[in-house]
C-alpha cells in the first residue's frame, strides 16, 4: 500500500474541532482507493465521484445523472455497491473504495470484465464501468440466484444502448446461473447452445 497526499484548492480546516468549521471550510479525508491511500483536503460539497474523477484522475466511474438514477458511477465501498455521485467525499474518511481501475490484476481482465467482452455486454461503453462494478458487487453479495433476481439486481444501472440481454449472459458466464427453460425457449442463442431446435 502506498501513501500519497494531494493538496487541494480549498483551505484545510484550521481547527480540529468540527463544530468550529465555517461554511466552505475544507475537510481532510483519508481514502483507500484501489489499495492506495490518499489523504486529501476536500470541499465539503465535493461528491466522491467528482473527487475520484477530478482530483485522483480516476475517470472510469462516470457521471450520468448526478442523482443516483442511472448507476454509471457505481463503485464498491467497503466491498458493497454504491453510487458515488450521492456520497460526499468528506463523509468517506477511512473508506475502502474499489473503482473499475482497480478490478484488473497485473493487466489481466477480471472475469466479469472478460465476460462483458465475450458476451458483447455493452455498445457505447459509458455505463459499462458501473455495470461491471454492479455485477462484481452482486456476485460478492451472493445475490445472483437466478435470471429474475439478476434482472432486478441490475436495474439500478441503466444501459441506453440496451445491452441488458448480453449483460445477463455475462452474469451467467461468471456465476454459472443456468437460464430457465422459458428463457431458453425464447432465445435462439440459448437454444443453439443447448443443442435444441
Amino acid at each position: 500500500m502506498s501513501e500519497t497526499t494531494t493538496g487541494g484548492a480549498a483551505r484545510p480546516s484550521a481547527s480540529s474541532s468540527a463544530s468550529d468549521a465555517l461554511p466552505g471550510a475544507a475537510h481532510e479525508v483519508r481514502l483507500v482507493v484501489n489499495g492506495e491511500v490518499h489523504t486529501l483536503a476536500v470541499d465539503p460539497r465535493a461528491t466522491l465521484l467528482d473527487t475520484l474523477r477530478d482530483r485522483l484522475g480516476l475517470t472510469g466511474a462516470k457521471k450520468g445523472c448526478a442523482h443516483g438514477s442511472c448507476g454509471a458511477c457505481t463503485i464498491l465501498v467497503d466491498g458493497r455497491r454504491a453510487v458515488s455521485c450521492l456520497m460526499l467525499a468528506a463523509a468517506c474518511d477511512g473508506r475502502e473504495i474499489t473503482t473499475i481501475e482497480g478490478l484488473a490484476t497485473n493487466g489481466a481482465l477480471h472475469p466479469v470484465q472478460q465476460a462483458f467482452v465475450d458476451q458483447d455486454a455493452f455498445q457505447c461503453g459509458y455505463c459499462t464501468p458501473g455495470q461491471i462494478m454492479s455485477v462484481a458487487g452482486l456476485l460478492a453479495e451472493g445475490r445472483a440466484r437466478d435470471d429474475a433476481a439478476v434482472r432486478d439486481e441490475l436495474s439500478g444501472n441503466i444501459c441506453r444502448c440496451g445491452a441488458y440481454p448480453n449483460i445477463l449472459a455475462a452474469v451467467r458466464q461468471v456465476s454459472g446461473i443456468e437460464p430457465t427453460p422459458a428463457e431458453i425457449g425464447a432465445d435462439a442463442r440459448l437454444r443453439d447452445a443447448a443443442g435444441g431446435a
Binding site: T59, G60, K62, L103, A104, L109, Q113, V117, F122
Partner: peptide, 21 residues
C-alpha cells in the same frame, strides 16, 4: 468478432469528452 475497443471500455481506459485530463 468481439469488440476491438472492448478492453478499453471494460477497464475504464476509454476516454469520453469529460474524461480528458
Amino acid at each position: 468478432i468481439s469488440r476491438v475497443d472492448g478492453p478499453a471500455k471494460v477497464t475504464g481506459a476509454a476516454t469520453y469528452a469529460a474524461d480528458f485530463a
